[in-house]
Amino acid sequence: MTSEPQIVQFTPFSSLVQPSFWHSLTKLKIDVLKLSQDEVPVTASYAAGRSVTDRETGQDVALGCNLILGGDAFEKTAQVPPHSVKCVGTLKNYNTIEEFKDADKPALFNKLADEMWDEISSAKDASDVSEILNRFLLITFADLKKYRYYYWFAFPAFAAKPAWTLDPSGWQGVESTFTQEALSNIQSQITTSTNTPAFFVLLSNANDPSRFEIHPLSSLESLSDQDITVGFIDPSAHSDHPGWPLRNLLAFLASRFRTRFTTPGSQHLKVRVLCWRDTEAVPVSGKWKSRLGTVSLSQSQSTLSRPSAVGWEKNPQGKLAPRLADLAPMMDPARLADQAV
């Protein structure tokens, strides 16, 4: 059976903005930004994808692939929740709804994408690569009188042409490849590190091949080992679709480490990818949620120029349009008084 190789599909990020973030934005707007429309750095985070078992049907329900913005997003020393990956983004707040609507979104998006691509393709040290690969853009208009916040996220991701394809074996559970012991060991390495690594390289221990060690992505430069697995904290819980961060990771690998992942004698890049989803308690049942798969890219074009990038978030109706957080019911004193009777 020679079916078409399956294209790797990625679960896009969906933004989850905590109300406390809007409170912080309100404060920032009134006390600091005032009429300034300058870009402000914000910190968000994502954690490994979770699914929950529906008690009535017994099905596993995947939860959203969330990028979370909290109340401390504007603080320079923002703490991310445990086992979460920190992302730094750019916020641009507009003073009027008209300016928000007329904003030159392609320009903003391309500027960020260019920055990201520069850093990806430049010869700079790969140690802080997670900061580069997980950037995002957020434009907002805060209607402070009505407690309404219009916002639009963009998570730029570089589209590969032709697209990455998945090996016929597809995404598999990790138990088939790793022993329970090895998995627990990997998990403890991920969860005990002070900063959860967004991306990592998994290598088997030289002395004991059943043990695996986690190395930073930058170690790819010095490694000669052929059996390399590249892992990342996967915010998606969907069994067949890894999360958005993998897209830029693959773009990065294809750009920077092209030769390392090219199988000798062929024109294909082959990367074994571990989608790590088990940052919380060790599964009691021994059922791990992480997935493993091999993706490949046929090497047809050079990647000197920046590939096109995608990633504007869709609104709940599935359209490319801004979202609205209406906090009046939770903030407006008049509405609260009504509701409290």
Binding site: I7, Q9, F10, T11, P12, K101, D102, K105, P106, F109, A159, A163, H238, H241, S308, A309, V310, G311, W312, K314, N315, Q317, G318, K319, L320, A321, P322, L324
Partner: peptide, 26 residues
Amino acid sequence: MEEELEEADEATAAPPKVPPKGTAAI
């Protein structure tokens, strides 16, 4: 939102690639 939509489509000419790659299918 609908006012915004037209401009947005222009703005993100690349993203039409997104549906086949992700959102819609999922």
